[in-house]
Design a protein around this nucleic acid. Sequence first.
DNA 1: ACGATGTTTCTAGTATCACCGAAATATCCA
DNA 2: TGGATATTTCGGTGATACTAGAAACATCGT
Lengths: 135, 135
Amino acid sequence: MKRYVDQLAALGQSGRLEIFRLLVRAGSRGSCVDDIKRSVRMPGSTLSHHLDTLARCGLLRPERSGRFVYYAVHWPEAARLIRFLTEDCCCKMSGRPGARPAAGEGRRRRRARPARRGGARTDESDTSPPRAARR
Amino acid sequence: MKRYVDQLAALGQSGRLEIFRLLVRAGSRGSCVDDIKRSVRMPGSTLSHHLDTLARCGLLRPERSGRFVYYAVHWPEAARLIRFLTEDCCCKMSGRPGARPAAGEGRRRRRARPARRGGARTDESDTSPPRAARR
DNA sequence: ACGATGTTTCTAGTATCACCGAAATATCCA
DNA sequence: TGGATATTTCGGTGATACTAGAAACATCGT
């Protein structure tokens, strides 16, 4: 569980997500730090920290080759993350998103719950941005 | 792009990931805050903040029903995130993870690059944790 | 060995975030 | 209306993260 949290947090940062996407496109051999630096235009120390973060959570793997260190996507781990999200979180919505996943729903309440007006609605009735400003 | 970053960051926190997974299992109608609170055992104010974060990035949608506010997974948005990750980041590794994605690789270097010893390796040769302690 | 190049560590400033108690707001029920 | 329940906002604190310049470390070519 913690590993997924770390991986999601690692990707949940613009700079790191950019780096990761770059390396996905770079292929299995990856890119060395200097090339990445030229692409993402970021001070070496900052880049190094981000790469370290991505490597620590398992999404990247460094490999030294002479003076250069190549960082490449660690596909098994990336696949594992995707699988976690799709299977554990979002498999229910494959197909049309409104499909209710027949959850156990066995949870009991201490007290009567007001009946849902309109009964089970179709959900996904709109795709509009979910009222961003609530304050 | 920013939306994906926000969503990944929102899920990259243990408490919020737990909430989100709970709501995935709760079905399309979602759960009201009080039920969630009893499940995740978290002070109301903290929970409210987390729910707000998840709602702001589009992954959850609140709906008031009397005294209760139901938070439910916003499936279209969740699906969009998954799609982004699979298509934009990790499609290459569907099937066996080692499959090299035939990257363009057209990027030029200022200077000669030391030849990769051993040529294209199979990658994913091991699944061991990527040398966590580098310091 | 020396200088050049590539990468990481050190150090530090700032911003952001997680957390939670207390108070405020909203709604229901009698 | 008043009390009870549900949820959010406010205020503050400690921890963590992002950033980056400077210095250190590693490796290559000569």
